[in-house]
Every structure is written in C-alpha cells, then in structure tokens.
Design a protein around this nucleic acid. Sequence first.
DNA 1: TCAGGATGTGAATTAGTGCTCACATTATTA
DNA 2: TAATAATGTGAGCACTAATTCACATCCTGA
Lengths: 218, 218
Amino acid sequence: MMDNTKRRRPRQKRSQRRVASILDAAAELLEEVGYRALTTNAIAAKAGTSIGSIYQFFPNKNAVVAEVVRGFRNQLDLILDQVLTVDLARQSVTRLVDVLVDSLEGLAAATPGFGSIFTGSKFGGSAEEQALELEKDIIEPLSDLLAQAYPNVSDEQRRLCMLVVTETTKVLMSRAAVEDRETQRKIRQELKRMLGLYLASHFEAPRRRGTRSRKSKK
Amino acid sequence: MMDNTKRRRPRQKRSQRRVASILDAAAELLEEVGYRALTTNAIAAKAGTSIGSIYQFFPNKNAVVAEVVRGFRNQLDLILDQVLTVDLARQSVTRLVDVLVDSLEGLAAATPGFGSIFTGSKFGGSAEEQALELEKDIIEPLSDLLAQAYPNVSDEQRRLCMLVVTETTKVLMSRAAVEDRETQRKIRQELKRMLGLYLASHFEAPRRRGTRSRKSKK
DNA sequence: TCAGGATGTGAATTAGTGCTCACATTATTA
DNA sequence: TAATAATGTGAGCACTAATTCACATCCTGA
C-alpha cells in the first residue's frame, strides 16, 4: 500500500498535461474542502478527466496527495533558503519568528492547498510521510540556525522549542484561516508576539557580538 | 439531523443502565481510537449490546458523542469553578495558566476520551456544538477573571488572548499525549512558560493591590 | 394474570468512496 | 499504412459504516 512504481509514467505531452491538471485539481480541492472530504471522483471531475486516468499514473489517492505535498516542499525550501540566514538568527529570534511566519503566510496565500496541508495532519501512507518531511523542512534549517547563533542552548531544549514553535504556528495559522483578513492579521501578530517572547526566553542569553560562535556546552 | 427528542427516553432501570454503558463505551473508544475511527458497531460491541439499542435512545452517532461531551462539560465546570478564582488571577497570570493547564491535564488523565474531545475538533452536528460549548466553558470564566483583575485591557484584546491560549493549549496537550510521560511533562512545562510570558505581556500592567499575594517566581 | 408499552436484536437497507477492468481512442514507430 | 504502445473512459465491484425495521422479549400497572 505504498507509492511504488506500479503505475505508468506519463510519456506523452498529453498525459503529462493530464497529470499536471490532476495535481492542480487535487491542490485546489484540498484548499476548498480539505483532506478528509477529498475524493478521487471529485479530483477527476475537477481535472476534467475520468477516475481511470488518475489510476493510470497514481497507485492510489494518497499518492496524488503525496505528490502535491512534494511540490509544496520544493516551493517552501526555495523560500526558506532565501529567508532564513544565520545573520538574521543572530540579530534576534524575534525577527526570525516574524520572517518565518510571514513566509509561511505568503506561501499559504499564493498556493492553493498549502495551508490545508501544513495545518492539517493525519493523512495516511505516503502523504503523511511527505507532510512530516515538510515539517522537517522548516524545523531543521531553523534549528541549525539557532544552534549556530546560540550554541549554549542544549540540543534537547532546542528540539522542544522547535516542537512548540511548529505546533503553535500550525494551529494559529489554521485558526486564522477561517477569519476575516483583519482578524487574521491580528492573530498572526499575537502569534509572533508569543513565539518571540517564548524563544527570546530561551535563546537570548549570549550577547550577539562577535561573529565567531563559541563551542558547545552541556 | 439533530439531537431532537425523536427517540425514546429510557424509563426503566434496565435501559438506563444500557444507556450509561453505551456512553461509557463511546468515551472509552474515543480515548482508544479517536473520533474519526469511532463506529456505532464498535460502541455496541464494547457496550455489550446491539446497534439497534443505540438507536433506541439516540437519533444518530453524533448524538451519542454529544451526550458524552455534555458529561465532560459538567466535570470541567465543577473543577474550574473550584480552581479559577479572582484571587488567583490577581496574584499573577502565570499562576493562573499553571493552574489551568494542570486542571486540564488532571481531567484528561482521569477521564477516558476527554483529551480526545478537548483536543480534537471537526465533529459534526450536535457534538460539534457541545465541543464548542466546552471551549466556552473554559474561555468565559477565564476571560471574566482577567477582566476583573485587569480592567485596563480591552475586550477585544482579551478575546484574542483567549483564542490564542485555548488553541495553543489544545495542540500542545494533544501533541504531548502521544509522547512518553517525561516528554509530556516537559511539553506542558514549555506550554506554561510560553503562555505565562505571553499573557504577562498583556496583563501585568496594573499592580496588584488590596489582595495580599506572595510571588515566588523564578 | 395479562395486555400493552418499553426494550432488545441483528439482518437488511442505504449510501459513499476507493479502485479495477474490459474496452475505446490516440500517438508513435517502422 | 498498419502494428504496437500509450492513454482515456466510466460502469461496476468491493468494502465500510450509518441507520432502519420487523420481530422477539421483558416489564409494569390495572
């Protein structure tokens, strides 16, 4: 029950276009109705094709979602690479949080379905794996940055903080999503404030001075 | 498709016992498998009865869950009444958060299914309503307390804070639930720390007066 | 005691959804 | 052009899960 290669790979332009429209349809439906209400029939209808065509190229529904998430990961990685810099981390964790939240918000606004995936969880099979990877794509660079900028904080504490930060960000951005624009902004503002205070309480000890990081302790 | 009284009310002791065992079974299954995987057949089997009997007294599956949640609300109200005092709120919001988190943790530990309901969401119909009421049962007394103790904070800001606090508490306690005991404790500790800092940043302006309060914070 | 209401039962009904398959159509290649 | 491979289709199968219903059994009041 996995994403094996038991299915054909699209060789002609025709089928490649079809696969793309299937993925687009899936992403849009994810945005509109969420993962739980996502059905293969709806995907086919929205993509203007038949269920059979989906199964021509995907072993099962989950594989379609997994592929969509894979696309999201690429976009996210691109943005985070650009935005999460050691320099920023050393400046202040507060700014780091602001940038992270804004990046995620921007991506969610520009990418149908992204919010639904980032926010939600409890997919099964390979989609679940991809969603976990997407989370790692955020946690790991962030964690590395903090490790470099604040080497006096233990690995375990840093891991705990990352858990808190991601989980909190997920719910609050998800909660914001159902509110009007103004409330959304306010919720994000509170999120930034809270995470800023929290992270600062763990990561502001060593004065950001020399660019040279000290060796780890504990 | 609601919780109306289209179904019989249990009049004999026999049926009252049966209804109780149905509710117990539902609560336990909620704890074991969660709401999504909860089936009427499983409830009937666990309660040692037949599906028909469930529908003798409940119009649908959702109504069973709604009734379970109603029970949780009663327990929660009892505890919160006892624990959330104006005195405490005036002492410090930090302590207030600690007490709230500990109370919820205690209830979750003692009541099968409570965590699953408090944490989760996205039930449908009347169960959804009850779950929202349960949330209000937390937010409202807490909000009232803060309004009394810190009247300089605007209603809107207070409402925003309550949203942040409840959502954050829900996810992190839910995330903690799948970890080992020690990690659970650590996550709760971080939750308290974060909420404490956050609330203090909004609610610590007016110095506590008439009430004698000792503060033994770190 | 016994009639009628209350309760108990579980096979059958209903309905939604993932997925397969036999067949149709289109593209590529020799 | 004709053979072969690639692709497209959608009715129908398989499975699950909520809910109903006709019938059986139990309880209570007169």
